[in-house]
């Protein structure tokens, strides 16, 4: 086996600036997504995910310009998510230099949007982002449902069934975030991740809850993830990408070094 497990730093951006703070000691402007992306790329990140949390639709051009600037300098895969609502949105992002787009709320509103997008642009560039929360009680078999709007809005969709439907509709990859774990630093929801990974044929990216390097290892070994996404542990300089990769390699995980 020689396909490496991927480490993907995630940048949350608003109006063309990285938010949630990035603290690299020797970076000139830690709010500039181009500089931050370039730094992660130089460190050996396997991909970059760029999440646009800009509230207003009018500022989409800023996002497109930012994606274009990143893509001119960063020669690893770039996924762009946030506010992808139409086929034109996807085309704009791909034309700006994104390799994949992540679709979340728009897929819940209209599952056929994913089918249309995959038919038009190919499954390889369609990532479906799933935000899931456990809804089963203690002692019951675990069950998770899909939530939108940052975990506020329930949809009553079963997460495993939803993931399967999205892959049937043409998703080439699943970006799976546990809303229970996101921001906790308690590690991925491993049961959720392995349940989804076993249910679908496409790669699954584990997201939400990373607080240390062992969590990355657990996500791959126990959560059956093909890639692990993290933001704060890298942004705040707690761990660098090479440290993460070295630790994973020591635990017997194949990584690109």
């Amino acid at each position: 086996m020689s396909l490496a497990k991927r480490i993907i730093p995630c940048l949350d951006c608003e109006n063309g600036r990285v938010v949630k703070g990035v603290k690299f000691v020797d970076i000139r402007d830690a709010g500039d997504p181009v500089e931050v992306s370039k730094r992660y790329c130089d460190q050996g990140a396997d991909e970059i995910t760029f999440l646009d949390i800009t509230a207003s639709h009018e500022d989409r051009q800023t996002t497109i310009d930012t994606v274009s600037a990143i893509a001119s300098q960063v020669f690893i895969p770039l996924t762009v998510g946030g506010g992808i609502r139409t086929l034109q949105d996807i085309r704009n992002m791909l034309n700006a230099g994104a390799d994949k787009v992540a679709i979340n709320t728009s897929a819940v509103k209209n599952p056929d949007f994913v089918r249309d997008a995959a038919e038009k642009f190919g499954s390889q560039c369609i990532v479906v982002a799933i935000d899931a929360k456990q809804v089963s009680e203690e002692g019951e078999p675990p069950r998770w449902e899909i939530f939108t709007h940052g975990g506020r809005n329930p949809t009553s969709l079963d997460a495993v069934e939803w993931a399967k439907l999205m892959v049937t509709n043409g998703a080439g990859e699943i970006l799976l975030t546990s809303m229970d774990r996101d921001g906790t630093k308690n590690g991925f929801d491993l049961a959720l991740n392995s349940a989804i990974s076993a249910a679908v044929s496409v790669p699954v990216i584990a997201s939400g809850g990373v607080g240390n390097l062992q969590h990355l290892v657990d996500g791959i070994k126990e959560g059956q993830a093909d890639a692990v996404l993290a933001a704060s542990i890298f942004h705040f300089g707690e761990y660098s990408i090479p440290e993460a990769k070295e630790f994973m390699a020591q635990q017997g995980i194949e990584v690109r070094i």
Binding site: L3, S201, P203, Q224, D226
Partner: peptide, 15 residues
């Protein structure tokens, strides 16, 4: 793979 893990399709990532 040799450890019994199911390989995903598409083949996606660094090989």
């Amino acid at each position: 793979d040799e450890s019994g893990n199911v390989l995903k399709v598409p083949h996606m990532g660094w090989n």
